[in-house]
Structures are given as C-alpha cells and as structure tokens.
Amino acid sequence: MAAGGDHGSPDSYRSPLASRYASPEMCFVFSDRYKFRTWRQLWLWLAEAEQTLGLPITDEQIQEMKSNLENIDFKMAAEEEKRLRHDVMAHVHTFGHCCPKAAGIIHLGATSCYVGDNTDLIILRNALDLLLPKLARVISRLADFAKERASLPTLGFTHFQPAQLTTVGKRCCLWIQDLCMDLQNLKRVRDDLRFRGVKGTTGTQASFLQLFEGDDHKVEQLDKMVTEKAGFKRAFIITGQTYTRKVDIEVLSVLASLGASVHKICTDIRLLANLKEMEEPFEKQQIGSSAMPYKRNPMRSERCCSLARHLMTLVMDPLQTASVQWFERTLDDSANRRICLAEAFLTADTILNTLQNISEGLVVYPKVIERRIRQELPFMATENIIMAMVKAGGSRQDCHEKIRVLSQQAASVVKQEGGDNDLIERIQVDAYFSPIHSQLDHLLDPSSFTGRASQQVQRFLEEEVYPLLKPYESVMKVKAELCL
C-alpha cells in the first residue's frame, strides 16, 4: 500500500493539533497551500530580480507567473513527485505547466533550498508574528487579574506546605514575570531571523556568478533584492546548502521555554482548584465526569500541561538535527523538520489560546482563602504575639514557653481530632496574655502579614508589564474561544 493518505478522510490519521486544537490561522501558515504558494512567490521574486539585473526574462513571463501564483494543481504535483521522487522539481514542473512561456526560467540558477529553506524562514517569521500578540493578550488578562487582587491576602506555599502570606495578585505576578520573559525572547528570536537568500547549491553562489558572467556586484544585488522582497532586513552571508540548523534550535528553545512557563502556571491553577481557592472557567453544560456528576475538573489547565510537556520535548529534535548536518548538509534534517517545526508552533498556539481562555474567566473564592488563612495564621502570628507581650512588660522566655504549650495543644486538636485551630481562643482565655487581649485582632490582621506584596504588584505592572504590552494595544480586544 502506498504511503500517505487522504487526510480529510475519517479513515486516515490526522494530527489532533490540526484537527482538534490549533487555530485556523496557525494551521494555514503550515498548510501545503501556504507552503507551495510561497515557493511560487519566491520563484517570481527571483525572476523579477534577475530581470532587473539584466537576464533575458520578459515582462510577459513575469506576468504569467504572477497570474498563476494561486493556480496550484495539487493532484498534478503529487503525481509528479511520485514520478520524480523530488518535491521541488515536482512543483517546478507543475508551475511550468500553467506558465508555459515562463517554464524555462522558473528556478533559474537556484537549488531546492532556495524555495525550501527560504519558505521555512518566512513561515517561522509569520508563525512567530501570530504567537506574539496571543502571548501579549494572556499577559494582559493576567495583569488585569493581578491588579484587581493585588491586596487580597492568601496563604503562600513553599514545598506545598503553608508559608508566609502573600497576595493573590502577587502570586499571579510570578506567572506574568515568566511570560514577559517569554514574550521578550519570542520577539528577540523573531527579529534575529535572517533570510537564507540566493546562495546556490553549497552556499557559494557559483551558479549565479556564472549567470551574471562573473559580476560579483550583481550577485550581491540579486541576494539583497530577493531578501528585501521577502520582507527581511538581512540575509546570511555564510550558508551551506541550507541555512544553519542552529536557527531551528533557537526558535524551538524559546517555544519550549514558553511551554515550561505555561505548565507551571496551569499546575498552580490545578492545585488551587483542589484547594477550592480558584477555578478555571466551567461552562453551564460542561460535564466533569461521566460517573461523578459533582466533579469540576480543571480540564483546560490539564490540557495545557499535557501539550506543554510535548512542546518542551520537541527542542531535542533540532538539537540532534543540527549535530548531524555533515559538511554542507545531509538530508537527516528533512523529514524531522517537516514534523517538529509545525508541531512546535501548533502546540504553542494551542496552549496560548487555551491559557487566554482560562485567564479571561478565572474565578476566585475569597471566603475559602480566608478560612485557610484562619487555619494557619495563628501559628504564624506567634512571633508577633511574643513581641507584643514583651512590649507590655512580659518575659520573652516565659511567653515563648506559654505559646509553645498552647500551640501544641491547638495542633493536637487540628491533627488528632480534625478540629479547627483554636490557638487564639486559648490565648484569649489565658490570664497571662490579658495585657494584649485587646491587640489580638490587630495582630491577626492578614494584611499585616503580606509585606509589600501589593506595592510590588503595582510597581511591576507599571514599570515592566504595561510598557512591554504597549506595541500590542491594537490587538488586545480579541477574545479566545474554545470549541473543545
């Protein structure tokens, strides 16, 4: 049975990233139509530049190519590739079939990587351009969430054990800070992308030097003109047959890092959902379990974690691919890159769409948070109580021993009897502590235990987050809708 299948058929496997999760716009960027249309555009740009620099290419040939950029006979191309065992030459023939007058000058002087690699770089750039505003929107939604809850005390956790208090907004800023680093890295790697350009079979530009009869300047002009037509500021000066596969490492490393950030955020949300302090959106008709109707599973956060793990592992592909590119190139890269580049971007696209949807509907339960604080705060307040007693004339050592005994009794009630923490009640009825009984409410005010959390939130948002989001103001209103 021949390899390949009808990918629109229910009898043929289709990647869930495309069929179930990723956005239509990201799927289109990695589609065959987008790819092969870009090949034709690159052939047109090459012909236009070659004509401008004096090669015998007519206006009629150029116009014929322009008129057929979208006229792609995919069936013919597939048949040609089956016959020739070469995808680029299959599309040269297919393009030439609908451009008979231009057929002889299509791909003039070029090698397969002229269309293959340059198209990949265009796709990487455009895919990054799709991700950047999506990530900015996630940051914006979380920034709104953090600002609104900047002063809401909550129990902090280290080692997932109760620690000092923080605020809900401050905790959210930990998430935002990681995503801001990801946004900066995505922008950097996007701006650092260079075009492969017009380089020939081993990167020496020998074929173009021959076409222009040894004119170095025209060869350099050709490279520059096509690079500018493709919208790049610069091209690699040095290439082998391909652009260095280190570029793929750079791009997928940034995406993998984004995956790590999203995994951490969504894990926190899942843990908070278990504590009943916070939940992701839950639709009115949504079913959490087929057997347990009360369940409210954090399905979206779980999906993000599941896909983020996949995204983090994909960076190993370009690392290994770059390491086995012998001399000017081997074909070890080809099949692998067809999979890992598309999957990385479709996965990143999915987790950003999902995280935006989550961040637009996060639900906080202040009463649950308050109750958990009441359970733990008495123990945390013991040092403040000791200091207040010393100020009232008591002995630190005597007070410490009193607190120690009462704390152990209260802990026994919590752990052995399943009761509430009654340390404060014990202190309130103990005559030894009568000098500070009137101060206990103040000493137990949760806001006095959150330090500068709310001020940190305000400063972080104003100095770091809002300036970073400013270039994306025009796209901030787009909502994230999930079908599944």
Results as ranks from 00 to 15, higher is better:
420 D>H: 02
44 L>A: 09
272 L>Y: 10
364 V>L: 09
137 R>E: 07
423 L>T: 01
114 Y>R: 01
250 E>Y: 10
348 A>Y: 01
294 Y>I: 03
114 Y>S: 02
416 Q>D: 15
11 D>Q: 08
238 I>R: 01
283 E>Y: 08
128 L>N: 13
261 S>F: 02
32 D>E: 14
365 Y>E: 02
156 G>T: 03
75 K>V: 10
321 T>C: 12
278 M>R: 02
477 K>G: 10
53 L>Y: 03
152 L>R: 06
75 K>T: 15
156 G>A: 12
9 S>L: 13
201 T>L: 02
210 Q>F: 03
443 L>W: 08
468 L>G: 08
369 I>Q: 07
238 I>Y: 00
209 L>Y: 11
435 P>Y: 07
317 D>K: 05
267 T>E: 03
327 F>M: 13
284 K>P: 09
230 A>M: 01
272 L>S: 08
169 G>E: 01
234 R>T: 12
56 P>M: 13
181 M>A: 08
418 G>V: 05
312 M>Q: 10
134 K>V: 09
179 L>W: 02
181 M>R: 05
108 L>D: 04
417 E>F: 12
321 T>M: 09
467 P>Y: 08
468 L>Y: 01
331 L>E: 02
263 H>S: 10
295 K>D: 05
5 G>T: 15
327 F>D: 05
51 Q>W: 03
334 S>K: 02
194 R>E: 00
291 A>G: 03
136 A>G: 12
368 V>A: 04
380 M>N: 05
201 T>S: 04
74 F>W: 10
87 D>Y: 00
473 E>I: 13
217 H>A: 13
26 M>Y: 07
133 P>C: 13
29 V>R: 05
186 L>K: 03
150 A>D: 06
34 Y>G: 08
328 E>Q: 00
221 Q>N: 10
197 G>N: 03
91 H>C: 09
357 N>E: 05
171 R>I: 01
112 S>R: 01
102 A>L: 05
64 E>T: 10
321 T>N: 09
239 T>R: 01
30 F>P: 00
349 D>T: 08
257 S>F: 06
442 H>C: 12
45 W>R: 02
181 M>S: 10
110 A>L: 07
328 E>T: 03
245 R>S: 03
282 F>V: 15
111 T>W: 01
364 V>F: 07
318 P>M: 03
328 E>D: 06
450 T>F: 04
72 I>G: 03
224 K>E: 15
104 G>P: 14
60 E>V: 12
188 R>V: 02
280 E>V: 01
113 C>M: 05
103 A>H: 11
484 L>S: 15
167 T>V: 04
223 D>G: 09
111 T>N: 05
140 S>C: 14
314 L>T: 06
358 I>R: 05
239 T>L: 08
